[in-house]
């Protein structure tokens, strides 16, 4: 067997374009996933039975069906109702909505971790509302949620590859295109696997660093 990795170097621009798209999709769905996750988390702990039931149904549904099926539903199914979007937009929305289900559980744990005593203690010391949020609530919630949210984000990046099924021009899609044009699937997919690993390893390194340096400092 002879390997020709030149195919990678000759088409590096194309792959890097895919990588850029992967970033783009990841970042936008991260933002959507966080904010929907936040809303769902508050609905989940709300005393209003309707809100909390909707939140539970949301989480259970998206966690118990495959992301690929969700993506097909958004991409092929919704146009039947007259809602149609481009592959990239669809991928961002579907990933965001899916990720929100996982985020909401983590955020909920973060909210629960802030007990009344902590806030009352701060109030009794004469802190203002804004100071309490900035100095007490956010640092404590971050301590509980930062690392789990980080690993959700890494998962999200890996999941962007599923968008190959609707050809969203991200890294995996471009790799597939390249592979069918050059008939070098071994070299191409091997490179892609390594690339994703480099991406996720450095990101999880960064998450650990930030956590140790700024978030969990002073806590063993």
């Amino acid at each position: 067997m002879t390997l020709h990795f030149r195919v990678i170097f000759n088409n590096l621009d194309f792959l890097l374009e895919g990588l850029k798209m992967t970033f783009y999709i990841s970042v936008f769905s991260l933002i959507i996933g966080f904010f929907i996750g936040l809303v769902v988390a508050f609905m989940r702990i709300s005393k209003n039975k309707l809100f909390s039931s909707i939140a539970i149904a949301y989480v259970e549904f998206f966690r118990n069906t495959p992301f690929l099926v969700q993506l097909f539903f958004f991409y092929f199914g919704l146009p039947e109702l007259g809602i149609s979007t481009e592959p990239v937009t669809t991928a961002i929305i579907a990933l965001g909505i899916n990720n929100a289900a996982y985020n909401s559980e983590i955020i909920r744990a973060g909210i629960i971790s802030i007990n009344k005593g902590l806030v009352e203690g701060a109030e009794s010391l004469g802190f203002t509302k804004f100071q309490i949020v900035r100095l007490i609530i956010i640092p404590n919630a971050l301590r509980v949620t930062f690392k789990p949210l980080g690993s959700n984000f890494i998962n999200l990046i890996l999941t962007t590859s599923v968008a190959v099924s609707i050809t969203a021009n991200e890294l995996m899609s471009n790799a597939m295109t390249l592979s069918s044009n050059t008939f070098r699937p071994f070299e191409i997919y091997l490179t892609i696997l390594v690339l994703y690993c480099v991406l996720t390893f450095s990101l999880s390194g960064l998450i650990h660093f930030v956590d140790r340096k700024f978030i969990s400092k002073g806590i063993s």
Partner: peptide, 24 residues
């Protein structure tokens, strides 16, 4: 353990199904 956990299953499947067959 770590490369498997940190790369997408889609890429693993394509590598195993299309890639390995091409060179072996």
């Amino acid at each position: 353990i770590e490369p498997i956990r940190n790369s997408p299953l889609v890429a693993q499947l394509f590598f195993a199904y299309y890639g390995i067959a091409m060179v072996t």
